[in-house]
Structures are given as C-alpha cells and as structure tokens.
Design a protein around this nucleic acid. Structure first.
Length: 512
DNA sequence: ACAATCATCACGCCCAGCCG
DNA sequence: CGGCTGGGCGTGATGATTGT
C-alpha cells in the first residue's frame, strides 16, 4: 500500500484553498480542527469563513433541489487542491466565499464577450458541457485537471494530461465518504391491500443512504429490530415506503433494484418518508406453520448467488420449518426439553446467510454453530428470565463479526452491501497528546505498522518500539503491528492509542 | 386533514470598492 | 485598468404555525 501526506476531504475546509471555515487556518498546515459537518446559516457561530454549499453531482443537486451547475463542477475539479485526497467524487462541497468569488469572476470572464483573444488564449479554456455529453473542445493542459471519470476517459488520450492525472485518479479510487445516518420510521399495516389499517406502534430505523443498494440491506435493518408486539408476525420480504406519513399516502413496493434506488433518492429529499411492513395473514401463517417441515434440499441450488431474493428465500425456508409457538410470534427454535430460543432479525439473517453460503451442517432446520444459537440460551417461555442469557453487546457483536468474517472468506458470493468492516478512518491518540492525528484514511489491508510508519516516519526511538492499544485504560487490548486494521475495527471510525516502550534486551530480571 | 400565511433558508447575482 | 473581494439584495423553495 502507499501512504501519502494527502488530506482527507472534509466539509469544514474549502477543498480549493484548504482554508478551514471554522478556524480560518489552513487545513493540513496549522489548522488542528477535526472533521466537522457544517451547515450554512446566515448568522452561524459555528464557522468564521462564510461559505457556499455547492452540489457536485446530480444526486446532491436533486437533494438540494437545485440545478447542477456543470460549469462549476468542471471548474471545481480543475482547481481542487492537489493536497486533497479525492478517490471518489464527493457529492457536494463547502466552498469558501473567496473561492466562490473567484468562480463568479471566472464565470463572468467566460461569458464576457471576448475582445481580442489569441488562439493560445482560447486554447487555455476548458469548455465542457456535461449535460450534452459533447466532446471536450479544448483542455488546459497546463493545469492538473482531476475531472470526472467520464471526462477522464476522453482526456486520457492526451498523454500529458493522463500523466498528470495519475496520482489524483489513484486517490479517487480510495476515498470513502463520511457516512451520514438517516433515521426513517417503520410502521406496520394490517395488510398490503386496501383498505388497510395502520397498527399501533412505530420504530425508527437508521440507514446510511449512501450505502443502501439492495433490498437485503433494508430487509436486514428491519429484521434486526425488535418489532412492536402489537404488529404480530409480519410478512417477511414485503416492505414498502410512503412519501408522506399520511395513512392515505401511496405505498411503493420495495422489491426491484429500481424501487430501492427510488426509495434512497426520495429518502434523501423528503423528511416525511416512512417504511411500511404488513401483518402476515393468519391463513398464510397457519399454512407456513403447519406446512411441510422438510424442504427439498435441491431447492438450495437457487441459493448459489446470495441476492436479496435468495436471502429472502432462505429466511422463508427457515420460517416454514419453525414450529408454531404461542409465545414467540416472530418465530423461535424449540428444543426437545421444551425450551425456546426466540429468533430475531439478526439471528435470522445470520442463519439465512449461512445457508446461502453453504456452511457445512447448516440448513433450514439446523442453525449455524454460533453462540447466539447456543442451546444454553434456550429458555422455557414462561420463565421470567429473559429468553437469552444476557451477554455484553460487545461479546455478542464480536461473535457475529467473527462469523461474518467466516462467511466473507467463503467462496460463495457475498450479498452486495454486507461488508465486514466499514472502517475508513482512524484517530491516533498518544499519552501526552489526545487526538494526535485525526481521521487518517484507512485502506483495505492496512496494518498497524503501515499506520505508524505514516504517523512517525522516523520510527521509534533507539531500543524502543511502538505499542498499539485499544485504550490506555487498564484492560485495553494490545495489537500486533502486522494485524490488519479492518480485521480489528468494524465501525466506520476507530481510535487507536499508541505508546512507546523499551525493547527488553536483558532477560536476567525475568528468568532464572 | 387541509389551506393559508409567514419566516427562514439557500442560492444566484450585482456592484462598489480595493489593490497591484 | 483588470483582477478580485465582500456586502447585500432578490427570489424561489421549504418548514412552521395558525386558522378553518
């Protein structure tokens, strides 16, 4: 992997001149401000430098309900700071007023009737019409021009420019956006057909809209929640979204890929969007409950590629084989001794994924050998204790993460969107300097050793070595330099504490 | 539940003035 | 005089509030 001194794209620094909108210092030089989302307000005290929020693609423009200024976009990419790490185009950017003025001036000069322009002058202007898709007339070859990929394709015909573009393009492949969590309410209706009635209760689902691409991701989020008991058993896989929260608002089915994209798009734009599930019909419920307990295993040939529908089918197969339980309407496993294990969305998804991934010994009757399916956790349903032995969220999450890892390395195609680790940035803390280096961008395969060689290129002091810890507190875990960050951290951001200790060279005090 | 009204936001744009 | 800056205005969109 390669490490550079590139700076991460951040909303609180102008990507063109790198001035920090909050402290007015230069990002990457003397500015020590952390990453911060900024919202423009007339009289805001959250920032000092006035700025304008500008859309850089159609997604952001739609969200802002503004027309995409293609001229600005091309100008932006021509003038973006070369110190900025741009591997994936940002949807929008906060541009300082000064740079906005420069753009305004640039635009005026472009539109201004030319007086006496020499051919060389004319050639120095880039004329790009992104909407029309027309070929680029002329390109300023004297400037680094990190244009959009569609344009790059054309531009790379020019050797000079493609050479100039190489570092920027490399960077573009690596950037990950700062995720923004969007909360969308989930409600339940008694049936999909009209007249339908909304049931009491609602829960909030959190999504990173930038990552929602498949039905499975929405399915997983819904099934991972504890649904209100008043909803009873819901129709697995039958979900819709509504553009407003009124009962009469249309229900848009979420099944096709297009409908998922439409949902994400609407969710970005509308405040009142909500997701809907439907109560499972009693007749169907019985049919499933008492239906064939044996599924033709040949059916599993349909699970070769784990798509939304295959995962969904796997879940349905599991549900079909569950015994009827008056206590756990969402489904449960019942042991020979009468103890139950309530199944929730998370466990169902893990089980289904294990089936799809053809983990040995796992089928629609046998759950995967995970701690959450441990027979010890089965409880008598009338027991006052919880159905599951309480465990710390941490331990539970880790077991799931480990299992997810196993699934990921299996040769079976993984469901798109279910990534092992969402890690994309880390912050380094030292004993004497908390937040010593913030938001260091992490690439796949990056190790602690890579990280430390970036932070301290000079290496440790003589006869000392760096120690990586999860915390300086007692009990904080230590990591080996060769360990990969993505194997350790699964959240989007991680904090790492770095210490330095003497290398023990004299063992006399330690051994006889 | 819906309509009307008002306040605020976010943006584009203009223009006076400064500077080299 | 050209290049540039910063203040401020106009306008359409949006959200909150109030009335019916």
């Amino acid at each position: 992997m390669s490490q550079t001194n590139s700076l991460q794209f951040r909303p609180n620094a102008c990507p063109l001149c790198l001035i920090c909108l909050v402290c007015t210092k230069i990002y990457g030089e003397d500015c020590i401000c952390p990453y911060k989302e900024l919202k423009w307000k007339r009289k805001s005290d959250e920032y000092i430098i006035d700025f304008r929020h500008k859309s850089l693609d159609k997604v952001a423009a739609r969200k802002q309900k503004t027309k995409l200024d293609n001229e600005f976009v091309s100008w932006f990419y021509k003038n973006i700071s070369p110190n900025l790490e741009i591997s994936e185009e940002p949807h929008d950017a906060n541009i300082c007023r000064s740079c906005i003025n420069k753009y305004e001036y640039y635009k005026r000069t472009l539109n201004r009737p030319k007086k006496t322009k020499s051919k060389s002058d004319l050639a120095s202007k880039t004329v790009i019409d992104l909407d029309s898709g027309d070929a680029i007339d002329t390109v300023d070859l004297t400037k680094l021009s990190p244009l959009k990929p569609s344009q790059e394709h054309n531009l790379q015909k020019t050797n000079t420019l493609s050479n100039l573009n190489i570092p920027t393009q490399d960077k573009k492949q690596n950037l990950q956006k700062q995720p923004i969590t969007t909360y969308i309410p989930l409600v339940c209706f008694n049936q999909f057909q009209k007249p339908r009635k909304k049931l009491d209760g609602a829960i909030s689902l959190s999504f990173n809209l930038d990552e929602i691409q498949t039905f499975g991701q929405i399915d997983e989020e819904i099934l991972s929640k504890e649904l209100p008991k008043t909803w009873g058993k819901i129709e697995i896989g039958l979900y819709s979204y509504q553009l407003s929260r009124g009962v009469g608002a249309d229900h848009f089915n979420l099944k096709s890929k297009d409908s998922i994209l439409a949902f994400v798009d609407e969710a970005r734009r509308r405040k009142n969007i909500q997701l809907s599930v439907y109560q499972e019909k009693t007749t169907k419920c019985k049919a499933i409950t008492y239906g064939s307990s044996v599924i033709d295993t040949n059916n599993f040939t349909t699970y070769e590629n784990e798509t939304e529908s295959t995962l969904d089918n796997a879940k349905k197969a599991i549900y079909k084989n569950l015994k009827e339980c008056p206590y756990h309407i969402q489904g449960c496993l019942i042991a020979e001794d009468g103890r139950h294990l309530k199944l929730n969305g998370e466990s169902m998804t893990l089980w289904a994924r294990a089936m799809v991934s053809r983990i040995k010994g796992v089928d629609e009757i046998t759950p995967p050998p995970l701690p959450i399916f441990d027979k010890n956790k089965y409880k008598f349903p009338n027991s006052k204790t919880t159905t599951q032995i309480p465990e710390t969220l941490d331990i539970r999450r880790k077991s799931i993460d480990l299992y997810n890892h196993e699934l990921a390395v299996s040769t079976v195609v993984q469901q798109s969107g279910t990534t092992l680790s969402m890690l994309h940035s880390v912050t380094i803390h030292l004993k004497k300097r908390s937040h010593f280096k913030e938001n260091i961008y992490v690439t796949k395969g990056m190790t602690f050793a890579d990280l430390i060689s970036f932070v301290f290129p000079a290496g440790p002091l003589k006869e000392k070595r760096f120690i990586f810890k999860s915390s300086f507190d007692t009990g904080g875990k230590q990591f080996l330099p060769e360990q990969m960050l993505h194997d350790i951290f699964h959240e989007e951001h991680a904090d790492i504490w770095v210490d330095m200790e003497e290398i023990i060279s004299n063992y006399d005090d330690l051994f006889d």
